[in-house]
Each structure stands twice: as structure tokens, then as C-alpha cells.
């Protein structure tokens, strides 16, 4: 869809909304509850008291003084249901069996949810510290995206390197290496900050052990997965591995993915890409992921294929 069309449609929708608001609203009868009284109704006669008499009402529930709120201590003998709930909770990071207060979540559950959501937003808008890049000896290039807002709105721009970026990698990177490692913040700078070092070092070690030649690694700010096609076109490596921050969720905001592709070039189809996801503290440990990725790359090189083609060739 081109931008012109999107704008026209948006305008239409907004106009429509505005006109409908101005129209006199027709009330649709909705019966949420019966308007008829139900149950036994008793009428109490009003007490007649002296005029002007002042009565005091308690407006808030008062706790008896000196008595602290009793906490429920877990009884030593847990019931079977409680055990079952703990067993089930241990099997998933999802918020299950958290209870409720009326029709709403409990305050703690709600606050935790807000906290996790905020962490996810922070991960998207955060920045990867320069020290990390220096430590791993990565130079930095950028995509055609100007800022975060544009990055979110225009995925296509995140798939292309800026002109300076192209020049820089042409100049600084080794041409046609066996493996090209690229790191990018993607949708979670936090993922890179927490995991990239361990994955990277472990991956490099694993490739060295296997005597696989690696090119000059670099960092791309605000990249998207398919950026590897352009990089492949420019540097002509056999394999590109892109370590990129995953879209944050409510379970983890710092999960890293490694995308791999054998000879990615402009026009590479998605089925030829493969991914190892869920790399973070609570998923696969970053160090172990790096070691595994190293052997996976060796497999890709051996079969000269990745993604679905690799599965087919392996037989």
C-alpha cells in the first residue's frame, strides 16, 4: 500500500468519527440488569427524631486499634490443590492462578503487569551503551531510519543501510568471509546490553574451535532482520548471523534472537532464514546459545543451506 492511500483512508476514518460524534446519539436500549425489584422487600419506617439532632456516621471501616493485619502463613501441610497450583505455576512464566478481586486483578498482579509493560516500553526506546561496543570492538553504522518513531512506523527503512553505513562497511570489513557477525538493537536495546557480550564471545570461541573464518563484526543501530540481505550483497559472506533484540513481551523484555542465513542476498526468501530465539537469563543461557550457534553455523556451511532448505538437505 502506498502512503498516499493510507493517508486518504485515515482521513476518511477520522472524518467519519467526527461526524458521528456530532450527530445526536441514539440511545440503544441495553439491559444490563433487571429494572424490576427482586427478592423480598421490607419497608422500614423512618424513625422520627427531634429536629436538628445531629447523628454521626462512620464513613470508613476502622480497623480495631493495635491489631495488625494478619498475614496468612503457609500452613506446613499444604492441601493438594495448593500443591497442584504451585506445580502448574512452576511450569510456565504466564500469570496463571493469580487470583482476583471481584472482576479485576489483585493490586500486586496489576502492579507487576504495569511494571513488566513499562520495562517492555523502555527496552524499545532504550539505547545500547557505547562501552559495550568498545568492549567487543564493534564499530557502528546506522540504517535509513532517523529516529525511534520512524523506526517503528517504517520497517522498510530499518532494512536498508544508510549511504555512509554502506561506505563504512565496504571500507572497514573484510570482504567475502565465511561468517559475518552483525549485532543490532532491533526492538530491544536491553537484550543487547544483557546478552550480546556472552553470546558473541562464546560464538567467536566456538567458530575459532571449528577453524571457521569470521569477518569484521559490526553494530547496526535500529536494524531489522532483513537487513542481512543488503549486508550479504555488499560483503558477500557465506553466512550472516544477526544478533538482534526481540520485540519485548511481558515475560521478558531482554530476549535476544539470532537470525542465520546462508548467502543472504537481495531477494532472499524468508524460508531460507532461520532463527534461534529466547536467548536470555530465563531462556537458553546466552553462553550456551553462543556455543550452539557456532556448531549450527558449521552445519549450515557443511550443507550450504539454511532454513527450510537445510532441513530438506539434512534429510
Amino acid at each position: 500500500m502506498d502512503e498516499q492511500l493510507i493517508q486518504t483512508i485515515t482521513k476518511l476514518v477520522v472524518e467519519k468519527l467526527q461526524t458521528s460524534e456530532n450527530e445526536t446519539k441514539q440511545e440503544v436500549p441495553v439491559t444490563l440488569y433487571s429494572r424490576e425489584a427482586k427478592g423480598v422487600l421490607t419497608e422500614t419506617s423512618e424513625e422520627h427524631k427531634a429536629a436538628g439532632e445531629v447523628t454521626f456516621h462512620q464513613t470508613a471501616d476502622q480497623k480495631p486499634p493495635g491489631k495488625k493485619r494478619q498475614r496468612l502463613e503457609p500452613s506446613p501441610e499444604r492441601t493438594q490443590e495448593e500443591e497442584l497450583v504451585t506445580d502448574l505455576q512452576a511450569k510456565t512464566p504466564a500469570r496463571i492462578a493469580v487470583g482476583r478481586a471481584g472482576s479485576r486483578p489483585k493490586t500486586n498482579t496489576w502492579l507487576q503487569f504495569r511494571l513488566d509493560h513499562a520495562a517492555a516500553v523502555d527496552a524499545v526506546y532504550g539505547e545500547v551503551p557505547d562501552e559495550l561496543m568498545n568492549k567487543l570492538d564493534l564499530f557502528q553504522v546506522s540504517t535509513r531510519v532517523k529516529d525511534k518513531e520512524e523506526y517503528i512506523r517504517r520497517p522498510d527503512l530499518g532494512r536498508k543501510l544508510s549511504d555512509e553505513g554502506k561506505e563504512l562497511i565496504k571500507k572497514r570489513c573484510q570482504s567475502s568471509p565465511a561468517v559475518q557477525i552483525v549485532v543490532s538493537n532491533g526492538l530491544s536495546a536491553k537484550a543487547i546490553e544483557e546478552n550480546a557480550e556472552d553470546v558473541y564471545l562464546s560464538l567467536v570461541q566456538s567458530l575459532n574451535n571449528g577453524k571457521v573464518e569470521t569477518g569484521t563484526s559490526f553494530y547496526v543501530d535500529k536494524g531489522r532482520v532483513a537487513l542481512m540481505d543488503e549486508i550479504g550483497e555488499i560483503l558477500q559472506p557465506d553466512v550472516v548471523i544477526l544478533l538482534i533484540g526481540e520485540r519485548p513481551g511481558l515475560v521478558s523484555a531482554e530476549s535476544l534472537s539470532a537470525y542465520l542465513c546462508y548467502k543472504p542476498r537481495i531477494g532472499t526468501i524468508e524460508a531460507d532464514r532461520m532463527v534461534v530465539s529466547n536467548i536470555h537469563k530465563g531462556g537458553i543461557p546466552p553462553v550456551e546459545a553462543g556455543a550452539y550457534l557456532g556448531t549450527l553455523i558449521q552445519k549450515i556451511l557443511k550443507y550450504e543451506a539454511s532454513g527450510v532448505s537445510l532441513v530438506k538437505r539434512e534429510g
Binding site: S202, I284, P285, V287, E288, A291, T295
Partner: peptide, 9 residues
């Protein structure tokens, strides 16, 4: 824990 490969390597 899940660390055998990296430790071995």
C-alpha cells in the same frame, strides 16, 4: 544447568 556445550568448547 544448561552449560555443557560452552564449557566443553
Amino acid at each position: 544447568t544448561d552449560h555443557a556445550k560452552v564449557l566443553g568448547q
